[in-house]
Design a protein around this nucleic acid. Structure first.
Lengths: 389, 389
DNA sequence: AGGATTAACTCAACTCTATTGAGCTATCAA
DNA sequence: TTGATAGCTCAATAGAGTTGAGTTAATCCT
């Protein structure tokens, strides 16, 4: 969220219903297919209440019936599952030079995705490009516009006037004053704004390797490096929505203390390659250079292992996540190499005897991750119960 | 919480009422004194609903009427405030060699506090000592036992079988299998278990410098060093309740990378002094040594500045708290010295133009902080609305 | 087989809360 | 003094989940 103001709100019949709808929907999503009695047990509601809500959700087209499933004695339960085409979310990523957009269905599948260059980074130009892209995607995929639940917008953080300015990657000042309201009016949709790392983290929960996890951390390679942490299915945002600015934390690298992003980020790998006269503008460029075992790239990888290991140790001990995921605008091959070269700390709360997942996983990667994540935030939102505005 | 399992639970009339009671109570606490109409506006409930709940709370003795207060036109609003003696919380801190306990009233004021040596760290011995201490405190302060809302218990973390073992400070293995149930049965009260840093963090919110803050971080000097982070009034616990294990994160210190607690912790200062044949068993010992500007202590302080600064930079950037608080089992003089010697990072999301509080504050200090915090968790619990078991 | 048992689910009556709208009261301002 | 404003109460209403009896369809046991 752009401003993390969870105004505590009272409950009444209507809000209770809305809350319970989300509880039920969330159960259906995590289970894949379930019967009503099982949902009732999991949610603390009665089967009757669940039945009423399921009837509502069916009518709204958010779920579909899947026949009965016999499991032991008694009347076999009628199963319900998400209706993929019951709702869609728009994801938009705004960069200084381009706009990316994607449409996801309720199951998190990408229905359409595209990008458009940005003539100028002023607000009208961005808005126009975004609207054009949206119309194009909806038309191309045949998505009914009234089925759009909302839009997620990814913009470079941090938000507000802070001590961090990513020179070059910034948007003009219009982006600093309530852009969510502006976008919401332009798109005529509810809009949430997030940074790339947080968006990508949520994407892993909806479609990636974090499915079924409630608490995990995601280290994201964007232009710099970012961190998104999810606890109990919700993003940790901090007081001003800027939590997870991992790029500037001090980490050890060859006997000195440096900011993480000076050694582990796309900019840093590009700088290392530029020193040898090599340009690596795209993910596939990097993939190719890695396949060729380009010495400068391999040297960068070697140098990145120590600071990245330290960062992971810090994240593990400060957030106690179920797992740490590495992803973003890097080729899988590089991510896998990095994961292989990381030394996991011995003294870490992550070193548990009862561990069921790996401490370090590779997540979705590529240029579109954050864009998909923006849409995933909307989907996640629809599933996360809360009695709070 | 011992296990961070926020089971998502459905809402019904009863749970909605309980939720709304907490919303109202929380408004009364944060405002100090308020009228019903104002609570209604803040909570999204109707004045009628608030009136009914206020009547309930009055009857339960949790709040008291404070007369009318004219503010502009219209009927002056009847003001309500917390009733200090409307409820109490027991805080218990279990150490291998002693048990500390305190009783707090609803306003967070310490009503009674004491400690008792522990003959042996086995479960029966701990339980017996704890019960004796509780009875003594209740009797000495004249607290009616039926007014106890619950108990908070502080035990050395981390919980569960992890890669971190604080040699020497551990409790026997009985502490690892559902001690909350055991204590709950022994005390006949709802019990929450937390580590010292988290408990101390909540204490700052109820009685300390974090009043009015919803999102902040607390660095706690215990035997080692710990971190408690509060976001939107709730503790960040991680997947297994072990978030905030800051002692083992790598930080720079004089050109090398070391675990934070090797340079910044009570154990480390004691080690530094022991090298010169000085023993500093208590907080007042340290205070005295600091007053005398003991060279070994001053050297330790100098050496602690760099790693502590790095830790604070990490906490600021990863959690984006409103402020970072330093406190715990250290004399105020030392904490102030440390705060003065810290170099706040330039590149930090905490460097905001719109900042209203200092980036670094001194919190409550002394041996009893965590004990009071344990009780504060119960008070905070009573005030934090949630529709979740 | 065939009855007993188990479990999912529906129906209708009921209960709990919050909301609605009219009406009363006390303060300020003109 | 009068009108406007704002807090608050009362009684009726409405929305949601709960309760308990009854139905249906499997499995288990004899």
């Amino acid at each position: 969220m752009f401003v993390a103001s969870d105004i505590t709100v009272g409950a009444n019949a209507g809000r209770a219903r809305s809350h319970n709808r989300q509880v039920v929907l969330d159960r259906v999503r995590t289970a894949g297919r379930v019967g009503r009695a099982e949902i009732a047990r999991a949610s603390g509601l009665t089967t009757q209440a669940v039945s009423n809500i399921i009837a509502d959700l069916l009518e709204d087209g958010l779920i579909v019936e899947q026949g009965r499933h016999a499991a032991g004695r008694g009347l076999p339960a009628v199963q319900y599952a998400l209706n993929a085409s019951g709702g869609y979310a728009l994801g938009v990523e705004i960069r200084p030079d381009a706009v990316f957009a994607a449409v996801l269905n309720l199951c998190g599948e990408t229905v359409a995705a595209d990008r458009r260059d940005l003539a100028s980074p002023d607000r009208d130009s961005v808005t126009e490009t975004m609207l054009g892209l949206r119309d194009h995607l909806l038309k191309a995929s045949g998505t009914p516009p009234d089925r759009l639940l909302g839009a997620g917008v990814v913009m470079p953080g941090p938000f507000g006037a802070t001590g961090i300015r990513d020179s070059g990657s910034e948007l003009p000042s219009w982006a600093e004053s309530a852009p969510d309201h502006w976008f919401s009016e332009a798109l005529e949709l509810p809009v949430v704004i997030e940074n790339d790392a947080n968006a990508a983290a949520i994407a892993e929960r909806i479609v990636g390797v974090a499915q079924g996890l409630e608490t995990y951390a995601f280290i994201y390679f964007g232009s710099g490096i970012g961190l998104g942490v999810v606890q109990n299915g919700r993003l940790i945002t901090g007081a001003h929505g800027n939590a997870g600015e991992i790029g500037h934390i001090p980490v050890p690298a060859g006997g000195e203390s440096v900011p993480l992003e000076s050694r582990v980020s796309r900019l840093s790998v590009q700088r290392a390659l530029a020193g040898a006269g090599i340009t690596a503008a795209s993910v596939s460029d990097l993939d190719r250079l890695y396949a060729a075992r380009t010495p400068e790239l391999m040297a960068w990888l070697d140098a990145a292992a120590e600071p990245l290991s330290a960062a992971i140790a810090i994240v593990e001990n400060l957030f106690d996540p179920s797992t740490v995921i590495l992803g973003g605008a890097m080729p899988d091959t590089l991510l896998d190499h990095l994961i292989g070269s990381v030394t996991l700390a011995e003294t870490s709360v992550a070193r548990r005897d009862d561990r069921t997942t790996a401490r370090l996983l590779r997540g979705a990667s590529g240029r579109m991750t954050a864009t998909l994540g923006a849409a995933a935030i909307v989907i996640n939102h629809a599933f996360t119960p809360k009695i709070a505005a």
